[in-house]
């Protein structure tokens, strides 16, 4: 019964059908099976947030989700949202504020920040800090990350695309 399970997951808009070991978590599935290396494995016990991806629109910890659990789901990774341009404004703001150094936490940081800006388009600096507090960055002092999220909040507000909550 520990056999591989046929799993169909739509990743970044492409349906992938793979036999996967039940024990394989979503990060290893994305990285090892699909070659999507942008999702980083930082702790594998659900603390650091580097492996944040979206399942059916919600951010999740990739290391606390089995690939087989995502069967039938829609998964988006940093590669997907980069290719589509969905978070280009946020990525730009991260560069402009120098909100990253080594970049290892950045994909998870970006997806986490984007989720906040979509659910709370008027998030305060304090709310941003709270929301981002599940994502660990060892290089920056978080200050620039908060700056970047704030500036994107303003750009989006001006552009009138506050967005809907992810339900």
């Amino acid at each position: 019964m520990t056999d591989k399970v046929l799993t169909r997951i739509t990743v970044n808009g492409v349906l992938h059908e793979r036999w996967v070991e039940p024990r394989q978590h979503l990060v290893d599935y994305l990285r090892d099976e699909l070659g999507l290396k942008g999702t980083r494995s930082g702790c594998e016990h659900g603390v650091c947030g580097a492996c944040t991806v979206r399942i059916d629109g919600d951010i999740v910890r990739g290391c606390l989700t089995l690939a087989v659990q995502a069967d039938g789901a829609r998964v988006e990774t940093i590669e997907g949202v980069s290719d589509s341009g969905e978070i280009a404004d946020l990525q730009h703001a991260f560069l402009e504020s120098n909100a990253l150094q080594c970049g290892f936490c950045t994909p998870g940081m970006l997806l986490t920040a984007d989720a906040l800006l979509k659910s709370e388009p008027a998030a305060s600096r304090e709310q941003i800090r709270e929301h981002m507090s599940g994502n660990y960055c060892r290089c920056t002092g978080y200050h620039a990350i908060v700056d970047a999220v704030e500036s994107t909040r303003e750009t989006r507000r001006l552009a009138g695309c506050g967005g809907d909550r992810h339900e």
């Binding site: 290396k37 942008g38 990774t77 590669e79 980069s82 991260f94 560069l95 080594c102």
Partner: peptide, 19 residues
């Protein structure tokens, strides 16, 4: 000056050893 080499990192296109 903004870091030109950071854009790839924001897009998950960096290459760390495990990649």
């Amino acid at each position: 000056v903004v870091r030109p080499n950071a854009r790839r990192l924001t897009e998950g296109r960096g290459t760390y050893v495990d990649d």
